[in-house]
């Protein structure tokens, strides 16, 4: 290699080094990512402060009562009052919501995505569903009061509560979450690649066979996650329950009632208990029992979300 060639190569190397080398710190991006971190921490810390505050207030209750706070029913005496009745109510409402809204919601989503012709009616239904998802929950409460409570009564399931029971509450909540179930399920169905459908039709499957064997199974993880999260919403809602006549005061402890009585009789739910206790004049209810009930409510929601994630992972692996 001649000296000239060598020099040229060295020069090229220097130029390339300069061209691809780091040219100092990119301050804009440092500033931006810093700002994002600060915002995130602020939000998180507000949440943490809130939870810490509630935990601190709830702490004495759990310390004194332990698990009995969860297993005791309603009581007028703050020393024996527990959330068991409320948990039972919430679980029953959630079950009814699941039984009603999931099949209907998933069926509606499949119909909208797979069968519905692309016409004005379908568009109308689609828009309506989206709008319904945004309607304030109190409106559903009024709907429940006007329709479902009388309906339950008319069906002879009014029981001792005269229709103001978990059945009416469950149906109302089911209708409340139905649009969300439809939207999330429809999105999951839409996310199934078209090629899978084509593959199904390509081997001579009917539309129903393609949907049953491929589209719904492929969409199932998405559908499940979405729908279980809507359950969490149903469990956390208070306003509609208040409107349709949930018991906000003391009623007969659930322990000595039959299942039928529990279903048709008066009921309460976790958020309602939080609501009513915090308005009690007795200081213990408001200051220590309500925060403790909040913790139980949060724990239930946490478990539900965990279940959603677990279900999704399981169904994703299963196929």
């Amino acid at each position: 290699m001649t000296a000239a060639t060598k020099r040229r190569e060295e020069e090229t190397k220097r130029q390339v080094e300069r061209a691809i080398g780091r040219s100092g710190i990119d301050w804009t991006s440092v500033w931006f990512s810093g700002a994002l971190v600060v915002l995130l921490l602020t939000t998180l810390s507000i949440l943490l402060v809130l939870i810490a505050d509630i935990l601190m207030k709830a702490w004495p209750t759990f310390q004194e009562r332990g698990i009995t706070f969860v297993t005791d029913g309603l009581s007028l005496n703050p020393a024996t009052a527990g959330v068991f009745t409320a948990i039972v109510g919430s679980v029953m409402i959630a079950t009814i919501v699941a039984v009603i809204s999931f099949p209907i919601g998933i069926a509606a989503a499949v119909w909208l995505e797979e069968y519905a012709p692309n016409n004005r009616f379908t568009q109308f239904v689609d828009t309506t569903v989206r709008n319904l998802a945004g309607v304030p929950s109190i409106v559903y409460g009024l709907l429940g009061l006007a329709i479902f409570v009388p309906l339950v009564r008319a069906l002879g399931l009014g029981g001792s509560s005269d229709g103001k029971n978990v059945l009416a509450a469950g149906i109302t909540m089911a209708v409340l979450v139905l649009p969300i179930v439809v939207i999330t399920a429809a999105e999951a169905v839409r996310a199934v690649p078209y090629s899978i459908r084509e593959a199904g039709f390509g081997v001579g499957a009917t539309q129903w066979e393609v949907i049953r064997s491929h589209v719904v199974p492929s969409a199932l993880p998405g559908i499940l996650t979405g729908t279980v999260l809507t359950l969490a919403r149903a469990i956390g809602e208070t306003a509609p329950l208040l409107v349709i006549g949930v018991a906000t005061g003391y009623f007969a402890p659930a322990g000595d009632a039959t299942l039928a009585d529990q279903i048709t009789g008066p009921y309460t739910a976790l958020p309602v208990v939080v609501f009513s206790w915090s308005r009690q004049t007795q200081a213990e209810f408001a200051n220590t029992l309500a925060p403790a009930a909040i913790i139980v409510l949060l724990a239930v929601l946490f478990i539900l979300n965990g279940a959603a994630i677990w279900l999704r992972n399981r169904t994703e692996k299963k196929w």
């Binding site: 090629s195 899978i196 084509e198 593959a199 390509g202 001579g204 064997s213 492929s218 196929w319």
Partner: peptide, 12 residues
């Protein structure tokens, strides 16, 4: 029967 441009096995 049909074979498509992109391999599209069922997720099974």
């Amino acid at each position: 029967g049909m074979v498509f441009q992109k391999p599209n096995p069922f997720p099974k």
